[in-house]
């Protein structure tokens, strides 16, 4: 492969073509459920049609959002999530989660992000997990409790990393918004933005954040995206040396614990049974090693209080 024209996006496309990272890149229906994050800005600043039309040639979309911009989008989504859920302050458990997550991320298809990956347990008994485009991964105590061993917890993190590497969050942003943002950028000719441009960009930014958080928290990704993230997780788990059967084990426990009609994974994810069917198809024919005793000991030690 020539180095020419390989950038991060091309790299991901190549990965997808090779079947490493899942295949579907269809745009999901973005969440249209209103959230409570500031509608004031949205109302205060609207782009004029003329400004948009002036730069109609600027037809950029989410593919052109740089990792640096993803970083600011991701930080803000993280801040919205941490407004809704309190961080769980157990240092031992979070340290263990971060070293495991970093080990998985390094062997994913997208090991490098602008500021890297960071993992956090949330103090909630809901069964849920979230990942921002910039590499912030959140997992609730309720979700940790669905994991009976290290392989299972690794599977949850690998699934969330899968959403990041496949850019599912960013694809939840309505394309028009990104085009608007780039239009503002094209208008701007000086080193610092005028206050009106900042207001317009912030309004577009806020709408983009709402698109993503609505999808993650309220409506969920498409079934195809969830299956693709499971596929990416199986690949990553295998590369690190984890038994990907952990994903099935976790889904089985989750299936027993999810409350029908609940506002967590029950609402935003396909039924565990259908995901198990998909994952078992990916595991067929592979030799699975037994979990190591050392893994079990450290998992129990780190997560006993969670």
């Amino acid at each position: 492969m020539s180095a020419k024209n390989i950038n991060r996006r091309d790299f991901l496309t190549v990965g997808a073509k090779l079947g490493v990272a899942g295949l579907a890149l269809s745009i999901p229906l973005s969440g249209c459920v209103p959230t409570d994050i500031g509608s004031a800005v949205q109302q205060a600043a609207k782009l004029t049609d003329s400004a948009t039309k002036s730069y109609a040639a600027v037809s950029k979309a989410w593919e052109d959002i740089t990792p640096e911009q993803e970083y600011y989008i991701g930080r803000t989504i993280g801040a919205v999530i941490l407004e809704k859920y309190k961080p769980y302050p157990n240092k031992t458990a979070n340290a263990y989660l971060n070293v495991m997550g970093q080990s998985l991320a390094c062997f994913s298809d997208l090991p490098e992000l602008f500021d890297g990956y960071h993992f956090q347990i949330l103090d909630s008994t809901e069964i849920n997990a979230f990942a921002t485009p910039s590499g912030l991964v959140f997992i609730t105590r309720g979700m940790v409790r669905c994991c009976q061993h290290e392989n299972a917890l690794a599977a949850v993190l690998a699934h969330e990393i899968g959403h990041i590497q496949l850019r599912h969050g960013i694809q939840s942003i309505e394309k028009d918004r990104v085009t608007k943002a780039f239009s503002i950028l094209a208008i701007e000719g000086t080193k610092s933005f005028a206050q009106s441009d900042i207001a317009s960009l912030t309004a577009t930014f806020e709408d983009s954040i709402t698109d993503i958080t609505s999808t993650m928290i309220n409506s969920g990704y498409s079934r195809a995206f969830e299956n693709d993230a499971d596929g990416a997780a199986v690949t990553t788990l295998r590369r690190v040396g984890y038994n990907p059967q952990g994903l099935v084990d976790m889904l089985q426990i989750m299936g027993q614990q999810l409350q029908p009609g609940g506002l967590d994974f029950a609402k935003t994810h396909p039924a565990p049974a259908s995901r198990i069917e998909n994952v078992e198809g990916l595991l067929a024919g592979s030799a699975l090693q037994a979990p190591s005793t050392a893994q079990e000991h450290r998992f129990t030690a780190a997560m006993k209080g969670v």
């Binding site: 993280g78 407004e83 960009l201």
Partner: peptide, 27 residues
Amino acid sequence: KGFNKQVESEFRRQNRHANFAGVDQME
């Protein structure tokens, strides 16, 4: 340029309850 620190600051000014301190801690 685009979605940057300045835009984040403006967002924070308008959304005082968003927990950026928690994100800073996580980072």
